[in-house]
Design a protein around this nucleic acid. Structure first.
Length: 643
RNA sequence: GCGCCUGUAGCUCAGGGGAUAGAGCGUCGGUCUCCGGAACCGAAAGCCGCAGGUUCGAAUCCUGCCAGGCGCACCA
């Protein structure tokens, strides 16, 4: 459609040139709000009217004759206050779908793009907030790849922060456990840490003197002193493995896990620090409350400054992030060492020790950081750091893909058995908090979804093999969750509600999957009755002369509505990428499925006796099935054969 | 206090200069000799937070106000 529209726009522009070209550069070609008005609308008469003061409708009437007999356009007319509406030739457009569908009409714009997403602290189980992050990041990755971009997905592991320290403290002081106990633990390790972390947090809250113990352990980990350092490593790895398993249930995968310990161990920060000092991007404070710190002045408010290096000489998170961001663009003049993640042949991790040969990482032209909106301020500082170093193009292409958090409704808290203290009872939602253990664990939610899906399958398809049922249930759970995370605009706070998330009806993932399943089953049934397979239907049909006119006028309208809408998929993908708003793609796919469900409710395919009519319908459904399948793949929503 | 975000149908949310503001859920009514009812069709339901302004045209852009949220750490 993108190519089609571009060609049409050029044809129209060349016709209009004789009357002057002041509006031709951005000639708008819009869609009409209703099919009966035609398919596309020109709005240039309004632009001319603005400049000349004449009536838009008069201008439209005057220009109309220039636009007669354009190839592919059946009818052209003036409508409303001054729109010029185009009615396309439906038959040739439909036929064009079968030759155009193979080639993409959009192309890569960058050599390489890095997406950083997921980034779960490796000290406890993943929760619903992490799921939103990962679903958004993974969908962005899928869409960019579809567009043709070379994408590298990174999941940053903060293995040296206080969060892991707290769990080490918990194992040592509260549980009196050592390294081998942690190794031996055979239950759900991430769940165990979840509870332990809550206990440590409340201990630290109630006994401030424990802070000393905490910094003791932090120092030991930083200086690689055992057993604390080994415990921290083991805790990190076991949690990372758990997170990868959780994300695997959603078909979310990564290319590289950069560890913060590598950034520190390989002295990335020292390199970045030297650069920042050299370019005078940061200043040493001699006087005042920030005495002894290295700070970066805040661009928008000169009075404020952000501390990058503390007075004790340690670097803050933002400092490390600036170093990491520089590395992503290949600007640090330094690289990690790499090794394969244990047990994987495609996932790499950074390492401080030299390893064997590895793919090239980093050195990208554009970076998307998928991080919730609460960190906007910090992301701004990182970008400002790049600017201060003179890396303006890279600053321009450092994109903070921000989104609102997932919070819990009082009702959902009650359902997971969480109690809220008195004063906060009035709030309409509650922020997820790892410290308080307030949150719905990702795997628990997935388990509930799978369980519900399984019982639905049991009702409809009791004779399927148990293993098959389980696999279908996994796919449905995955589809339900991914659609749920995508259907909201990113600035919309999701107040989590179990009934809503567990719904399989209406605007949900399973509705989309169900549409696909029914389409698949039409072709399965058709073949079982002795009909041709999909490839054979396409091979044997005369795609340059489809018997479109054998349809009734009503059906032509109904089918055209579907085909013309489906043709807008790539535009929706581009729109979604540009606005980082994948709810567009989600709604589009949902609307398309709705139109399709309505269509085949009215027009049977395999029971249709008129051969030409049946042939048009078969071809149309093959095409639409391909479009929907592509849309679902872009959102990472699997489509089983049955459900 | 300063900055960012959000106020649209009973509820959850789309639409972010263009033609009569849309979905899902819920409510009410229908489709069940149907290629899968996880479906389809229909109805009721809206001062698009309030007040100004810009425009041929505003839910959409600008200004002010009201209400809510999130940031503004030598945490990450």
């Amino acid at each position: 459609m993108i190519t089609f529209k571009e060609k049409l726009r050029k044809k129209i522009a060349s016709r209009l040139r004789s009357k002057g070209s002041f509006f031709l550069d951005d000639l708008e070609l819009n869609y009409t709000p209703q099919m009966k008005m035609g398919d596309m609308a020109l709005t240039f008469p309004f632009q001319i009217a603005k400049q000349t003061g004449r009536s838009p409708r008069d201008i439209a009437v005057e220009y109309l004759p220039l636009l007669k007999n354009i190839e592919g356009v059946d009818k052209i007319e003036v409508a409303g206050a001054g729109f010029i509406n185009l009615h396309l030739n439906r038959k040739t457009f439909f036929e064009g779908r079968f030759t155009a569908s193979r080639c993409r009409s959009y192309f890569a714009e960058e050599n390489k793009i890095i997406i950083e997403h997921t980034n779960i602290n490796p000290n406890k189980a993943a929760h619903i907030g992490h799921l939103r992050n990962a679903c958004l990041g993974d969908t962005l990755s899928r869409c960019l790849k579809d567009k043709g971009e070379n994408v590298e997905v990174q999941n940053y592991i903060d293995d040296t922060g206080v969060q892991v320290v707290d769990v080490v403290l918990g194992f040592k002081d509260l549980e009196k456990k050592d390294l081998s106990d942690i190794e031996k633990y055979s239950g759900r390790f991430d769940y165990y840490c979840w509870d332990l972390y809550v206990r440590v947090s409340s201990l630290l809250g109630a006994n401030p003197h424990y802070q000393k113990r905490r910094s003791e352990i932090l120092k030991k980990i930083e200086h690689n002193i055992d057993p604390e350092a080994s415990m921290a490593r083991l805790i990190t790895m076991r949690n990372v493995k758990a997170h990868l398993n959780t994300m695997n249930r959603l078909d979310i995968h990564y290319d590289l896990l950069p560890f913060e310990s590598s950034i520190l161990g390989l002295k990335f920060w020292e390199k970045a620090f030297a650069l920042l000092k050299k370019k005078k991007a940061i200043f040493f404070v001699e006087e005042g409350p920030h005495k002894g710190c290295w700070v970066m002045p805040f661009e928008e408010d000169k009075e404020k400054e952000k501390i990058i290096v503390r007075s004790d000489g340690t670097v803050t998170y933002v400092g490390k992030d600036i170093a990491y961001q520089l590395w992503k663009f290949g600007l640090l003049e330094r690289d990690f060492n790499y090794s394969l993640f244990p047990g994987s042949d495609s996932l790499w991790v950074t390492s401080i020790h030299p390893g064997s040969s590895h793919p090239s990482f980093g050195k990208s032209d554009k970076v998307y950081n998928v991080i919730d909106t609460r960190q906007s301020y910090l992301q701004k500082i990182v970008v400002q750091g790049l600017k201060a170093l003179g890396f303006f193009p890279q600053a321009e292409k450092s994109i903070h893909f921000s989104y609102e958090m997932v919070a819990l409704s009082p009702k959902s808290l009650k359902e997971i058995g969480q109690k809220i203290s008195g004063e906060k009872k009035e709030k309409t939602f509650h922020e997820v908090s790892g410290r308080k253990g307030l949150g719905i664990k990702a795997d628990d939610l997935m388990d509930s979804l799978e369980e519900k899906a399984l019982s639905e399958i049991e009702k409809r398809n009791p004779d399927l093999e148990p293993l098959q049922k389980k696999e279908i249930a996994r796919k449905i759970a995955c589809g339900a969750l991914r659609y749920f995370m995508l259907k909201f605009a990113r600035n919309s706070l999701i107040i989590f509600d179990f009934d809503e998330a567990l719904s399989f009806e209406g605007e949900t993932g399973p509705y989309l999957q169900y549409t696909m399943v029914r389409l698949k089953s039409i072709f399965r049934k058709w073949e079982n009755q002795g009909g041709l397979s999909e490839p054979d239907i396409l091979a044997s049909a005369d795609l340059k002369n489809i018997p479109w006119d054998s349809l009734t006028d009503k059906e032509k309208d109904d089918l055209w509505d579907l085909i013309f809408y489906a043709a807008q998929l790539e535009e929706e993908v581009l729109h979604s990428i540009r606005s980082l708003e994948f709810s567009h793609l989600a709604k589009f796919t949902f609307n398309l499925c709705q139109k399709l469900n309505a269509y085949y409710h009215l027009y049977p395919v395999i029971t249709e006796s008129e051969k030409n009519v049946r042939s048009v319908r078969l071809l149309a459904l093959i095409h639409l099935k391909n479009v929907i399948s592509r849309a679902l793949n872009l959102m990472g929503i699997p489509h089983p054969d049955r459900m």
